[in-house]
Design a protein around this nucleic acid. Structure first.
Length: 385
RNA sequence: GCUGGAGUCGUCUAGUGGCAAUGACAAGAGACUGUAAAUCUCUCGCUUUCGGGCUUCGUAGGUUCGAGUCCUACCUCCAGCA
């Protein structure tokens, strides 16, 4: 499905935007979704522990899948034979595939040797086989998967990498973006570019401007929230980038995240977010709950409870009594505590539903605030609770 | 009653003269941001000013510089025979 972003309203006092993503399929049929949006992650063509119906019930827009993982298994050929990713996984909503760029850094064993101009050498985690992923190959795979949004294959170094590394990385990511765009043939698929540059103002500005010159259907900000980056640097990375992105294209902050980050991102002009944290936290027994806490670094973090803790054994209240999700409407903490203690998957399912809905509900509330030009007050209330 | 065998952290278990004592589970807690993650880390006899101190391997004695480990008796459990 081809996508168009429509900016509907810009908040009077901040950079926050309310908009719509309008997807049109081959037959001219439209699907519309509001932004800001939180996209659940389904790396292996499934949002872990959830059925498509359960994902749908959280009111999502786009969901994610990953090129790297699907390349190795089941292979793009299989997905193509199945009739594309939508059919394969029974998801008729929009799908965004990450390019494998993130895996470059988390999987390449020897960064210096494995990451070359031509592409990246991997060792398959499945069978130890030597693999080589290039920008062209990544786009080709995404074309075959037939996702709605393909991401450029970027180099995603930690924000804490030194300036020179980040500078070279920005240049390389630009060259890779061009190479990817040239081979992008799927007319029914959108291609997004990725801005890199760590926390450095000049690099972000340069990366954003050059990426826009290449021309993409949407723009992402990458290389944030990794390897111990502090929140301040992450917000800087965003605010150094968004001013140079076109107003009529959607902006995607990759891999983020936490409730606070959604707010801070939106404030700086981001429209869409994705993060593994709601589903991973769920599998590890944690539920997002209202309020904030301060972590050991002094950063404001989301509040959450660990349902495995003994204190929930006889707590027969819902996870969050302000929440409208299936889990909160039907189950108690004591029951989820029991399921997590027994390693029953249904516990992870219930927590995933809640955590995803928690973030999506936050985007819905932010949306309303932007519509009413009251986002500044919304932010103030959020921090004062 | 006789003959073998066994009793070690909540549970199972390693240990055959230098041991607060192995591993697993359970338990208590923490971490997690484009998913190498339903994973990982820490604690788990008592106590501590974190150097240590104290008490532990069925019970009671004994041998030894030193005993969960060797000896004696007893208690309990299991198997076989009466």
């Amino acid at each position: 499905m081809k996508v168009k972003y429509k900016l509907i309203h810009k908040d009077k006092n901040t950079g926050a935007r309310y908009g719509k993503l309008i997807f049109t399929d081959k037959n001219g049929k439209k699907q519309e979704y509001d932004t800001p949006m939180f996209m659940p992650v389904g790396t292996q063509a499934t949002v872990k522990t959830l059925s498509p119906e359960q994902v749908k019930a959280t009111n999502p827009g786009i969901i994610l899948a990953n090129t790297y993982h699907l390349w190795l298994r089941p292979t793009p050929e299989v997905v193509e034979k199945a009739g594309g990713l939508h059919k394969f996984m029974n998801w008729d909503g929009p799908i965004l595939t990450d390019s494998g760029g993130y895996q470059v850094f988390s999987l390449a064993h020897n960064k210096k040797k494995d990451i070359t101009e031509e592409g990246v050498h991997f060792k398959s985690e499945l069978d130890g086989k030597k693999l080589f992923l290039t920008p062209e190959e990544s786009i080709k795979i995404q074309n075959m998967l037939d996702s709605d949004i393909a991401m450029s294959f970027d180099e995603c170094p930690p924000a804490t990498a030194d300036y020179n590394y980040l500078k070279n990385s920005v240049e390389r990511t630009l060259r890779w973006a061009k190479r990817g765009k040239i081979v992008h043939k799927n007319k029914n698929q959108n291609l997004f570019g990725i801005v890199q540059g760590g926390p450095h103002q000049d690099l972000r500005e340069y990366s954003a401007k050059e990426t826009v010159k290449i021309g993409f259907d949407g723009y992402a900000i990458g290389g944030v929230a990794n390897d111990g980056e502090c929140k301040d640097d992450m917000y800087k990375a965003v605010e150094y980038s968004t001013p140079f992105l076109p107003e009529d294209k959607v902006r995607y902050l990759m891999g983020v995240g936490e409730p606070v980050d959604l707010i801070e991102g939106l404030k700086r002009g981001i429209d869409i977010f994705d993060c593994v944290s709601p589903t991973r936290l769920a599998r590890h027994g944690n539920a997002l709950v209202p309020g904030l806490r301060t972590d050991k670094r002094g950063d404001k973090k989301e509040n959450r409870i660990n349902l495995k803790n003994a204190r929930f054994k006889e707590d027969f209240s819902p996870l969050d009594d302000t929440c409208d999700c299936y889990t909160c409407k039907n189950y108690t903490k004591a029951y989820i505590h029991h399921l997590m203690r027994c390693d029953e998957t249904f516990g992870a399912t219930l927590l995933s539903i809640h955590n995803i809905r928690f973030l999506i509900r936050l985007t819905e509330e932010m949306r309303e605030a932007v519509k009413n030009d009251s986002f500044e007050k919304f932010v103030a209330d959020f921090y004062s609770d």
